[in-house]
Design a protein around this nucleic acid. Structure first.
Length: 435
RNA sequence: GCGAUCGUAGCUCAGCAUGGUUAGAGCACCUGGUUGUGGUCCAGGAUGUCGCCGGUUCGAAUCCGGUCGGUCGCCCCA
């Protein structure tokens, strides 16, 4: 087959809104994900993995058909069996599904799970917003006590701090679905918005009936002005929700977690009840555009006491959060720690002369088997080239093997930091190189 | 999904308003100076379908149209 028959060469760029993660950037991502999972594990949250795709219904019923995410951002396709499947746009609904599927709600509670992985949403990509993006998060299911809210929020805030981003925690309660609580409040809100109708921006006027709470999210000047006298949900919570919210706040203060009350905070997914929170960028008000772009949230979460039932399962209250790894990396910037972005290679085996190539490979292999991080030349480089490659690999030691060394069962060990060299018996190498 | 803006070596960019011989720089890469030694220095070398397709022209990186992609804004969120 000649070139003509092959047609146009394939486009090697990854699909729009996606990216190939390669070293050194990929090291930062995997390190951050590990830090997250370790932090979560330290509070009793075990790893959970669910499929990359789910039955579309899980998101329609779980996340809510009126939400923006389900309405127009999902990657939905039909498989060969005629099933409608969707690439996961978030992981709370799938995790709750998995818990119900395994009947974990009948075992010891709470069920505490943590995850890290890719999510998918079809939106116009820009800085900090991609079609495939990485999230870490936790879910605690089975307890409606305010203590869980406090634990979850504290873990998120502590992880973000250790990841090197400065955040402000915005906190709100949006009550539960009942005429004495949110439903009742919504009537008041709609009434108020109706009165202000001509002052609202057109986009927001449309939302008054479809999703009135979301009007609070508006960035339109006109709408913001019109909202000045709007009733806040926190003033209309039922007694139980008000008490719950009060406890959460008291516990956060106990734990030394600072927060700002934000009565206009409304999250985009329909399943949230009571506590809702968001971690927004606090590092440099002016430099915001240069940091997260038009995005300002590292992540957020909240309680979802009705989610399990809307998926058709037993009642199972829960709370969790999701954080965007991509955004955290942007917000943390490239710290000084990132210079040593390489892998954990401690030693580099240098072969001098053709006769040393085979012994070098087997020495490297033996050292690796004993648990050391070892690399060597696979390009047939000159000695000078190998030394250069050794320096580049980030290794502390060069283990040099030439005819003289082989003859005496030794190697020349060079400290690449100081340049000091010494002869070392091969059998002593592993011990000397151990960190 | 809508609007704006950008797209030249691996990377960061110059060149483009006034189209015209082999398209440049720095960094990175490779080789040599040092027949068995890196990080400094010196000398040399390789590298581009000027995003892609088409149009105007004797001639296009340069002008025009379309398209794809990045970035920014809207929307929404992680």
């Amino acid at each position: 087959m000649d070139d003509k028959d092959r047609g146009a060469p394939p486009d090697l760029a990854p699909p729009k809104g996606t990216t190939d993660l390669l070293p050194p950037e990929s090291w930062r991502v995997s390190r951050l994900a590990r830090l997250a999972m370790d932090t979560f594990a330290g509070a009793g949250y075990g790893p959970v993995d669910t499929p990359i795709f789910e039955h579309t219904e899980i998101f329609e019923r779980g996340v809510g058909a009126t939400s923006e995410v389900v309405g127009k951002q999902m990657y939905t396709f039909t498989d060969r069996g005629g099933r409608s499947l969707t690439l996961r746009p978030e992981l709370t609904a799938p995790v709750v599904r998995a818990v119900l599927a395994a009947n974990l709600q009948r075992g010891p509670l709470p069920v505490k799970l943590a995850y890290a992985g890719p999510m998918f949403r079809q939106e116009r990509p820009q800085k900090g917003r991609y079609r495939q993006f990485y999230q870490v998060g936790i879910e605690a299911m089975g307890s409606a006590l305010p203590a869980v809210d406090a634990e979850v929020i504290e873990i998120g805030s502590r992880f973000l701090a250790s990841a090197g981003v400065e955040t402000t925690l915005l906190l709100n309660s949006i009550g539960h679905v009942d005429s004495s609580c949110r439903t009742g409040y919504l009537k008041l809100l709609v009434e108020y918005l109706e009165e202000q109708r001509d002052r609202l921006a057109p986009v927001d006027a449309e939302r008054v009936h479809t999703n009135p709470l979301r009007v609070f999210d508006s960035k339109e000047e006109a709408t913001r002005a019109a909202l000045e006298g709007a009733p806040y949900i926190t003033d209309h919570l039922c007694d139980d929700c008000a008490k719950h919210f009060e406890s959460v706040r008291a516990l956060l203060e106990d734990l030394g977690v600072g927060y700002e009350l934000e009565p206009r905070l409304v999250r985009g997914l329909d399943y949230y009840t009571r506590t809702a929170f968001e971690f927004v960028d606090a590092g440099g008000q002016q430099g915001k555009a240069a940091r997260l772009g038009s995005q300002n949230a590292f992540g957020g979460g909240g309680r979802y006491d009705g989610l399990a039932e809307s998926l058709g399962g037993d009642a199972l209250p829960g709370i969790g959060f999701a954080l965007g790894l991509d955004r955290i990396l942007i917000g943390a910037g490239g710290g000084p720690d990132d210079d040593v972005a390489g892998g954990p290679v401690n030693a580099y085996v240098v072969a001098i002369g053709a006769a040393a190539a085979r012994p070098a490979l087997s020495l490297a292999t033996r050292l690796r088997a004993s648990g050391l991080g070892v690399d060597l030349d696979l390009m047939g480089r000159s000695v000078k080239g190998q030394m250069k490659d050794a320096a580049r690999s980030g290794a502390r030691w060069a283990v040099i093997l030439g005819d003289a060394e082989i003859a005496s069962g030794e190697s020349t060990l060079r400290d690449l930091t100081s340049g000091a060299e010494s002869r070392v018996a091969l059998e002593d190498l592993a011990g000397l190189l151990a960190p």
